[in-house]
């Protein structure tokens, strides 16, 4: 799986075998292959949904449904397809349904989504403030820009894969990413050190 910005796709797990091979093994009846695959993507997928959702509960519900759909679709899995874009497309479709049922326009941000309550060393106070602001800025981005940013950072998808998942062109994705990063940078100018 391509991962141009090494953020979080593999969660420290070994890169081999490939995601697609693991899915093919699971489709053939290997439950351990699913466990490995799940371990690789549970964190990135959960954070992708959590950063998009207004609450933990909604993210958990969508997370579970995404994996259940993967499990149910195992017999129709085509080994030549890339797994990560497929997984995130399922999640994104579920998100779209969720958004349709619950328009998010002026919803207040659930502070539990931006949970920074873990202990920070004193020297890291500035960093903590910056991270906190970053997450708030991220949740305030337009949905499409946030989506492109999260698909890249959490999903590890390429521009082409993001374009495929979101049903847009590569240049559109590129422009959304550029705009998202510009907005984030503008809000974090004092965090350059």
């Amino acid at each position: 799986m391509p991962n141009p910005i090494p953020v979080s796709t593999a969660e420290g797990t070994p890169r081999e075998p490939a995601d697609e091979d693991l899915m093919a093994l699971y489709a053939a009846g290997d439950a351990d292959a699913f466990d490995t695959l799940y371990e690789r993507f549970r964190g990135p997928l959960f954070r992708y949904l959590l950063r998009h959702c207004e609450s933990d509960g909604a993210a958990e519900e969508l997370f579970q449904e995404t994996w259940l759909r993967v499990v149910r679709a195992r017999q129709g899995w085509r080994p030549q397809a890339a797994f990560a874009p497929w997984l995130f497309r399922i999640a994104r479709n579920l998100l779209a349904d969720h958004w349709r049922q619950r328009p998010p326009a002026s919803e207040p941000i659930d502070e539990s989504v931006v949970d920074l309550s873990f202990p920070w060393p004193e020297a890291w106070t500035l960093l903590r403030d910056c991270v906190e602001r970053l997450l708030k800025l991220l949740s305030g981005l337009a949905r499409e820009q946030r989506d492109a940013f999260l698909l890249q950072t959490e999903g590890g998808l390429t521009l082409e894969q993001i374009a495929e998942v979101t049903g847009t062109g590569r240049e559109t994705v590129k422009s959304r990413l550029r705009y998202a990063l510009r907005r984030l940078r503008a809000g974090l100018e004092d965090c350059d050190e």
Binding site: Y26, F34, Y38, G43, L68, L127
Partner: peptide, 28 residues
């Protein structure tokens, strides 16, 4: 942009609760 991405990497990394892991693996 690298700085923004670096900041994002330092952000808390919430994970799904254990009960979800158990339920999904059992379903699989």
């Amino acid at each position: 942009d690298e700085r923004i991405l670096d900041l994002y990497r330092r952000a808390p990394r919430p994970e799904p609760p254990q009960r979800l892991d158990t339920a999904i693996r059992a379903a699989a």
